[in-house]
């Protein structure tokens, strides 16, 4: 546990002492604002809720969070510092979890910075604050899944850009599996039952109820499973460097 906290603190420090995290968070806030108001038409809808805001989270996270996570392991491999880490008597899972939690904290910070929108809703009207709060929590959980994907791809390569592109690709697959164009393809190829199952496994599908403030244990379990799976994959990829 001491090792996990040490890795977490170091990673977080490196996020806040380099400009990248600030740039990413700024771009995220700009993008989320743009989509919420211009595309989602938050004001035009004349409703006091944040559904247009949350609806874009999967799409923006899909690009933004791989960018946050891409350096987690790639940078270690590029600089050679991974050799220092892996010759310390700390279990691999502690290193993986420490780094993941640091990146997740950045995502949480980005979400917290969208709070003015929530405050504005309360000034304009009387939104369902409990629903908004649970939607925020679901969004945070979903962010964890995207970061876990980014972490796994980062452990595969020493090139951050490659890690980023791979992560966006995998993230896109998991996000869009539920879109009609994708499920139609599967329906044609594998039959309706399979297409239905694939669609249910998509992040969009799982986040659908959550963005309206409905907590489904199924979705919570789904996101936790995604996080655990991709972090497990990260640990395997990191350990594979030892070349057993």
């Amino acid at each position: 546990m001491t090792s996990l906290l040490a890795v977490y603190r170091r990673e977080l420090l490196s996020y806040v002492t380099t400009p990248t995290a600030y740039v990413f968070v700024a771009v995220f806030l700009f993008a989320i604002g743009l989509f919420t108001f211009q595309v989602g038409g938050l004001f035009e809808s004349r409703r006091v809720d944040l559904t247009p805001f949350f609806a874009f989270h999967p799409w923006i996270f899909m690009v933004f969070l791989p960018a946050v996570a891409m350096r987690l392991w790639s940078e270690e491999a590029r600089s050679g510092a991974i050799e220092v880490l892996m010759t310390l008597p700390a279990p691999t899972w502690a290193l993986v979890a420490g780094k993941f939690l640091a990146a997740w904290t950045i995502a949480a910070a980005a979400l917290v910075l969208t709070a003015p929108l929530w405050v504005t809703m309360n000034i304009l009207g009387d939104p369902d604050n409990a629903a908004i709060f649970t939607a925020y929590l679901s969004s945070l959980l979903m962010a964890g899944a995207y970061i876990a994907i980014g972490s796994a791809m980062s452990a595969l390569t020493a090139a951050q850009v490659v890690a980023f592109v791979l992560a966006v690709l995998v993230a896109f697959l998991f996000t869009a599996m539920g879109l009609p164009m994708v499920s139609d393809f599967f329906r044609g190829a594998m039959g309706g039952g399979f297409a239905e199952a694939i669609a249910r496994l998509s992040i969009l599908h799982q986040f659908d109820a959550a963005q309206r403030g409905v907590v489904e244990i199924r979705s919570v379990f789904y996101f936790l499973t995604l996080i655990a799976t991709f972090l497990g994959f990260t640990a395997l990829a990191v350990d594979a460097r030892r070349g057993a």
């Binding site: 001491t2 603190r9 310390l88």
Partner: peptide, 12 residues
């Protein structure tokens, strides 16, 4: 900070 990090990762 680096040495502190190594020491704490070592479990100190």
């Amino acid at each position: 900070t680096f040495l502190r990090f190594i020491a704490e990762t070592r479990g100190m």
